[in-house]
Simulated assay, not measured.
Amino acid sequence: MFGDISGMMGKLKEAQQKVEETKVRLNSVLVDESSSDGKVKVTLTANRQIKTISIDDSLLSDTEELEDYLILTLNKAIEKATTINENEMAVAAKAGMPNIPGMDMFK
């Protein structure tokens, strides 16, 4: 009914390997973001791991303002990293998927 089952299983293993390789590669893809005035700068990997945070000294005296800056800047960086991550993972998953009738959700 589905044709060559062993061939499909091989394709699925290949897809899984591609996804794992992509995850590893995304650890080296860096996303930089900064506040509109440049007082806070963050760097994340495309897997959404924070690598660096740089804070201007002028923000150190006002905790509430610093928190606001961090939240806004980190959220923007996470959004960018998530977009990159999702796009790359979709490509990796699609590349190795076997052609199963009715399973065209990756197209």
Results as ranks from 00 to 15, higher is better:
Met1Cys: 09
Met1Pro: 10
Phe2Leu: 07
Gly3Phe: 01
Gly3Thr: 07
Asp4Pro: 04
Asp4Glu: 11
Asp4Leu: 07
Ile5Ala: 12
Ile5Ser: 11
Ser6Ala: 11
Ser6Gln: 14
Ser6Arg: 08
Ser6Tyr: 06
Gly7Trp: 00
Met8Asp: 08
Met8Glu: 04
Gly10Glu: 15
Leu12Met: 15
Leu12Pro: 08
Leu12Asp: 08
Glu14Ser: 14
Glu14Leu: 12
Gln16Cys: 03
Gln17Ile: 06
Lys18Arg: 14
Val19His: 00
Val19Tyr: 00
Glu20Ile: 12
Glu21Gly: 01
Thr22Gln: 06
Thr22Leu: 02
Lys23Ala: 06
Arg25Thr: 03
Leu26Ala: 13
Leu26Ile: 13
Asn27Met: 12
Val29Phe: 14
Val29Asn: 04
Leu30Cys: 00
Val31His: 05
Val31Phe: 07
Val31Gln: 05
Asp32His: 11
Glu33Ser: 05
Glu33Asn: 08
Ser34Met: 11
Ser34Cys: 08
Ser34Val: 02
Ser36Glu: 15
Ser36Arg: 12
Asp37Glu: 14
Asp37Cys: 06
Lys39Thr: 04
Lys41Ala: 14
Val42Ala: 08
Val42Ile: 10
Leu44Gln: 04
Gln49Thr: 13
Gln49Lys: 15
Gln49Arg: 14
Lys51Ile: 15
Lys51Cys: 13
Thr52Asn: 15
Thr52Tyr: 02
Ile53Asp: 10
Ser54Pro: 01
Ser54Met: 03
Asp56Arg: 03
Asp56Trp: 03
Asp56Glu: 11
Asp57His: 00
Asp57Ala: 03
Ser58Val: 06
Leu59Gln: 07
Leu59Arg: 05
Leu60Gln: 05
Ser61Phe: 01
Asp62Asn: 13
Thr63Trp: 05
Thr63Ile: 09
Glu64Ser: 10
Glu64Asn: 11
Glu64Lys: 12
Glu65Met: 13
Leu66Ser: 04
Glu67Ser: 14
Glu67Lys: 10
Asp68Asn: 11
Asp68Ile: 08
Asp68Gly: 05
Tyr69Met: 03
Leu70Gly: 02
Ile71Leu: 14
Leu72Ala: 13
Leu72Cys: 02
Leu72Phe: 07
Leu72Lys: 09
Leu72Met: 09
Leu74Ile: 06
Lys76Thr: 09
Ala77Glu: 12
Ala77Phe: 09
Ala77Tyr: 05
Ile78Gln: 12
Lys80Leu: 12
Lys80Asn: 12
Ala81Val: 06
Thr82Lys: 14
Asn85Pro: 11
Asn85Gln: 15
Asn85Ser: 15
Glu86Pro: 10
Asn87Lys: 15
Glu88Lys: 12
Met89Pro: 01
Val91Trp: 03
Ala93Ile: 02
Lys94Tyr: 02
Lys94Arg: 15
Ala95His: 06
Gly96Lys: 06
Gly96Glu: 00
Met97Glu: 02
Met97Ile: 01
Met97Lys: 02
Met97Phe: 10
Asn99Met: 08
Ile100Val: 13
Pro101Ser: 11
Gly102Phe: 07
Met103Lys: 00
Met103Gly: 10
Met103Asp: 08
Asp104Trp: 00
Met105Pro: 01
Phe106Ala: 10
Lys107Arg: 12
Lys107Ser: 15
Lys107Pro: 05
Lys107Leu: 08
Lys107Val: 10
